[in-house]
Amino acid sequence: MARIDVASTVADVPQLRGLFITAMPDCLLFGSWVREGETWHPEDVAAYFGDLIRANREGLKALGSWSALMQVTIESADVLIILRELEGDFVAGFVFSRETPLGMVRLHIKRMTDRLQAQLPAFQVQERPRAVRVLEFLQRYAPDPHASLLRVSLQTGVPLETLARPEALAAEQLAAVERSIADILGIDELHL
């Protein structure tokens, strides 16, 4: 999957456990590197990190404090995560061992970001149809994802075969599907 050389980007950072490059706004994995022994699923991680950045953007806009190329820091029990927006609408998610000193983290990130930025393509990532993205969002967050399409179909009357080709959904079908997904996830509307 990697269309950039992520492995050499991280070569001299022993505290790094994983690096995930997410292409926005679709939250798709663009490239990744995971240290041997980790059992993470890069596609999942990249998608969730993308959603986090989108939520962060919305939150900062609500505070009137938004600016491009923001950074999010997450400190969990065993990892330190830095999500960094990159030019070209990419997001880099750096996952460090928890005990790594913050100063060291910043230094490594500066160096790795420069390397990544030099490799990332300059083209504008094309946004996929909204219907595709909303159904992917459902799959990521539905409590029982294997049953989620059945639930949407039952709630909306949109046949399963149609949901399997979401790009072909008519406007009113998409609106019904979005209302259904919001209902399943218990949110007022989908911000995608």
Binding site: A147, L150, R151, S153, L154, G157, P159, L160
Partner: peptide, 19 residues
């Protein structure tokens, strides 16, 4: 109730009852 509206919908509900 679903069967009255659509057989396709009924098939979906049957799948969820099986689930």
């Amino acid at each position: 109730h679903v069967e009255h509206q659509s057989q396709a919908g009924a098939a979906v509900m049957e799948a969820l009852l099986r689930e």
